[in-house]
Computed example of a mutant assay.
Amino acid sequence: MPQLDTSTWFITILSMIITLFFMFQLKVAKYNFPENPEPKLMSMPKSTTPWEKKWTKIYSPLSLPLQ
């Protein structure tokens, strides 16, 4: 049974990685990116809910005075 010749694997894998790197660089270089992205000022709409109009407090049973 013949042995598998692995002497060329290193150069094959290395050249494949380099080629994929250059292809990725060329693909990314086609896109136009903004120079200085400015943040958008977003105003949050004020929602009126019934519990915001009055003062409320929730008492836990352990904080109530002893009777």
Rank of each mutant, 00 (worst) to 15 (best):
residue 1 M to G: 09
residue 2 P to C: 09
residue 2 P to A: 14
residue 3 Q to L: 13
residue 3 Q to I: 05
residue 5 D to G: 03
residue 5 D to S: 09
residue 8 T to Y: 00
residue 8 T to D: 02
residue 9 W to I: 09
residue 9 W to T: 05
residue 9 W to A: 09
residue 10 F to Y: 13
residue 11 I to L: 06
residue 11 I to H: 08
residue 14 L to T: 05
residue 15 S to L: 13
residue 16 M to I: 03
residue 17 I to A: 12
residue 17 I to S: 08
residue 18 I to Q: 05
residue 18 I to P: 03
residue 19 T to R: 00
residue 20 L to H: 00
residue 22 F to T: 04
residue 24 F to N: 06
residue 24 F to G: 03
residue 25 Q to S: 06
residue 26 L to R: 13
residue 26 L to K: 14
residue 30 K to S: 12
residue 31 Y to P: 05
residue 32 N to G: 05
residue 32 N to M: 10
residue 33 F to A: 13
residue 35 E to T: 12
residue 35 E to P: 10
residue 36 N to T: 07
residue 37 P to C: 06
residue 38 E to M: 08
residue 38 E to K: 14
residue 38 E to G: 01
residue 39 P to R: 07
residue 40 K to R: 11
residue 44 M to L: 06
residue 45 P to D: 03
residue 45 P to I: 00
residue 45 P to L: 05
residue 46 K to W: 00
residue 47 S to E: 11
residue 47 S to Q: 11
residue 48 T to D: 07
residue 48 T to R: 05
residue 51 W to P: 05
residue 51 W to I: 15
residue 52 E to V: 07
residue 52 E to P: 01
residue 52 E to F: 10
residue 53 K to R: 05
residue 54 K to T: 10
residue 54 K to G: 15
residue 55 W to Y: 12
residue 56 T to P: 04
residue 57 K to I: 00
residue 58 I to S: 14
residue 58 I to W: 13
residue 61 P to I: 11
residue 63 S to E: 15
residue 63 S to P: 05
residue 65 P to L: 11
residue 65 P to D: 08
residue 66 L to W: 15
residue 66 L to A: 08
residue 67 Q to V: 15
